[in-house]
Amino acid sequence: MSPEGLSKPEYQVPQEMQNQVALTTLDRLYNWSRKNSVWPMMFGLACCAIEMIAAAASRYDLARFGMEVMRPSPRQSDVMLVSGTVTKKMIPQIVRLYNQMPEPKYVIAMGACATSGGPFKEGYNVVAGVDKFIPVDVYIPGCPPTPQALLHGLMTLQKKIEGQSLKEVSWYQKGPGEPIPVPVLGPDLIDMRKAAVIRENSQPVADA
């Protein structure tokens, strides 16, 4: 990190002290360290995961962004890369994993499938985008996105992290956050937040 990046330009540090002293704000220091060590959760869903592996491998090398530490456990990870088609059978687990991640946590929807269902949208076992259930920070288009696109997406996430402020972020507010209710597998996928709507719309049509 060069001093220009960290020091606030309003406070000029005298020439002779520039190698010893840097002035900055807490927000910037906090975000600077956070954004350069984002640990993704090791978790691949479908074809996009192969490009994720390619991005982590030697040619594209995610390590340059401090992101090579793939964690198999959600409790140690900062970002969930949803790389592939989200199916109804899988979404309860994804929501559960998301709930288990500690704050601050981010979600990247990689590829057309995670964004909207993609080529398989019309399928009966496919969730039309992971954002139906968990909040997404960055969407990466493509089927599959190339490793370059993935890197761009991760850099976009870094920018987003840079812009956050300790005062406002949700995880430093009072009280615990609410977990997302885990969907249930019924005759079809049941989103418990929509239970009332489901009951209402499933009533037998009264004969006129």
Binding site: L185, G186, P187, D191, I198, R199, N201, S202
Partner: peptide, 26 residues
């Protein structure tokens, strides 16, 4: 949008008379 054509605004369908609160998952 495909979602808008569906009464639940989502890729789901249920048998008539289905009550999610009474459902016991397998």
């Amino acid at each position: 949008h495909a979602d808008d054509r569906n009464p639940f605004n989502d890729n789901v369908q249920y048998p008539t008379g289905f009550d999610p609160e009474r459902w016991v998952p397998e």
